[in-house]
C-alpha cells in the first residue's frame, strides 16, 4: 500500500516512515503542501497522511484543494492541534480521519488500514478472492487452510490488486504503489512478483491484460 506522508518535521517524518515501512507500507515523504498537491496530482497513492501546520500551504488548504480537484484519496490528518474546532475544520475540509500527536504507532497503522478498507468498501482487514484470503493486519495469506509464505513485495502486489479488484493496474501503477520513489528496481520487478504469486497461489488469481496491466476479478 502506497502512502504519501506530508510532514514538515524531517525527524518525525523519518520515524513515521520507518514505522510504516516496518509494517510493510510503502511510504513516500514530502515536506510541503505544494509538493504534496503536485505528487498527488501526478502519481497514485492509496492514502495521504497530512500534517496541518505546514510551511506555505497549510494542511487544511491541501485537503481543500484536493477535494475541489475531485481527488478522493483518503486523507488522515496528523496534527498537534487538539482543539475540537481544528478537528471539525479538518474533517469539514474533506479529511477522512484525524490523529493527534503524540500518537501510538499501532493506532496510526490501525487507522490507515481502516481508512483504506472503508475507501475500498471492505468490511474487514481480510480481502478474499476465491479460496485465497489476504489479512492486511496479520500480514498473512492463506489458500484454503494452508498459509502461504509471501515476500513483503509479493504481499504488497497482491494486496494492491485485491484493493483495486476489478480494475486493471498498469505495471507502472503497481510499481508506484509498491515501491514508491525511494527504491531502485529492475524494470521487470513487478512481472517477477506476479510470476511468483501465480506460482504460489495458482495462475487463475491474477489476470494479465495484454498491453495494459494486471487485474484480480
Amino acid at each position: 500500500m502506497r502512502i504519501l506522508l506530508v510532514e514538515d518535521d524531517a525527524l518525525l517524518a523519518d520515524g513515521i516512515k520507518t514505522s510504516l515501512m516496518l509494517a510493510n507500507f510503502n511510504v513516500d515523504v514530502v515536506h510541503k503542501g505544494e509538493h504534496a498537491l503536485h505528487a498527488l496530482s501526478c502519481e497514485q497513492f492509496d492514502l495521504c497522511i497530512l500534517d496541518i501546520g505546514l510551511p506555505g500551504i497549510s494542511g487544511f488548504e491541501v485537503v481543500n484543494q484536493l477535494r475541489q480537484a475531485q481527488n478522493t484519496i483518503p486523507v488522515l490528518m496528523l496534527t498537534a492541534r487538539d482543539q475540537i474546532t481544528d478537528r471539525v475544520k479538518g474533517l469539514d475540509q474533506g479529511a477522512d480521519d484525524y490523529l493527534l500527536k503524540p500518537f501510538d504507532v499501532e493506532e496510526l497503522k490501525a487507522r490507515i488500514r481502516a481508512l483504506v478498507r472503508r475507501t475500498h468498501g471492505e468490511g474487514s482487514s481480510k480481502l478474499e478472492c476465491g479460496d485465497v484470503v489476504v489479512d492486511a493486519q496479520a500480514f498473512t495469506v492463506t489458500k484454503g487452510d494452508q498459509e502461504i509464505k509471501l515476500s513483503p513485495k509479493e504481499f504488497s502486489v497482491l494486496h494492491e490488486l485485491l484493493l483495486h479488484r476489478g480494475r486493471v493496474l498498469s505495471k507502472d501503477q503497481l510499481t508506484e504503489l509498491v515501491y514508491g520513489w525511494s527504491e531502485d528496481l529492475d524494470s521487470n520487478a513487478i512481472e517477477v512478483h506476479v510470476h511468483h504469486l501465480r506460482k504460489k497461489l495458482g495462475n487463475a488469481i491474477i489476470q494479465t491484460i495484454r498491453g495494459v496491466g494486471y487485474k484480480v476479478s
Binding site: D9, L11, L12, G15, I16, T18, S19, L22, A80, R81, L100, K101, P102, F103, D104, V105
Partner: peptide, 21 residues
C-alpha cells in the same frame, strides 16, 4: 505544550521503532 507535542511524537515514534526492530 503544543510545540512539545511534535518532539514528543518524534521520540515516541523512534523509540517504538527501536522496540520493534
Amino acid at each position: 505544550a503544543h510545540e512539545l507535542r511534535t518532539p514528543l511524537s518524534i521520540s515516541k515514534v523512534h523509540l517504538q521503532n527501536i522496540l520493534q526492530v
